[in-house]
Amino acid sequence: MTATAPLPATGKRPRTAPRHPYRAALASARGRTGLVLVALVVLAGLLAPLLAGHSPTDQSSQSLAPLGTPGHPLGTDDLGRDLLARLLYGTRADLGIIVLSVPLGALLGCLFALLAAVHPVLDTAVQRLFDLVLAFPGLILALAVTAILGPGRLPVVLVIALAEIPAFGRLLRGGILVEREREYATAARVGGSSRIRVLTRHILPNAADPLVVQIAVSLTVAVFVEGAMSFLGVGVRPPQPTLGSVLSQSVPYLSDAPHFAAGPLITVTALVLGLSLIAEALNREIRR
């Protein structure tokens, strides 16, 4: 330390100020890999109209064309639709569903948790409500909601949001219970802040970290639910593509045209793996 590497003059290399945990998480190897994977998928979805040479629903005479067919780089599906276009627009549809449904579920879950924090009676009521939602296994919930609304985009969004409410609600409720016993919360109360203000301005920001991790986790769950509903035939209505519906349509042709399944398989895997890596990186940094 003294002989080989002379220390730079004081002030030249100051001890780096502790970075915000989210930034540190995203800068870790895990976080970076996750970000790259997710960014690629998001870019593909955003640029779908520019990258796809065809409409995802136009049928051509060539059905199940192989990879590298002129005009159809990823080939075509059983109805002669361009697989690249279906993959890109399917990704776009999935992204649209998950960025709508997860924040909706998170918002509702947090509102319920805040409501529960107001009074013990409300707390019991909200807890039982969560129990009830959790008593329905996710896909059973999907079937029930679709029974009312019929298949389409809206039920998919609602099912995901509904299924996520208890996850966020329980997490925030637990956080509030811990945080409101802390000294700063007492101090804020003694200082004359109203209960609502203490809850929303002091406790909520301090209990928010696990929620950020949960958002990343819920996004992967949302991809899962969309795909599962497509497989069950209760998802977004055909012929509009989603990642799940393209994959489920490829299943009967797995032995004759495995490339049919390859695109959505790779995209779904990249997306969920990327999101889980981000979630794990965030979790590690926050727990430090």
């Binding site: 992967t220 991809v223 899962f224 795909g227 599962a228 497989f231 799940g244 994959l247 489920s248 490829s250 299943v251 797995l254 032995s255 495995p258 399944a261 398989l265 779904v268 895997t269 969920v272 793996l273 889980s276």
Partner: peptide, 19 residues
């Protein structure tokens, strides 16, 4: 196994063992 949804593992298993 945790990250990848079952419909992806399902299709992969079919591709591997059946096709």
């Amino acid at each position: 196994a945790l990250a990848v949804p079952p419909f992806v593992t399902g299709v992969l298993l079919v591709l591997l063992f059946a096709v």
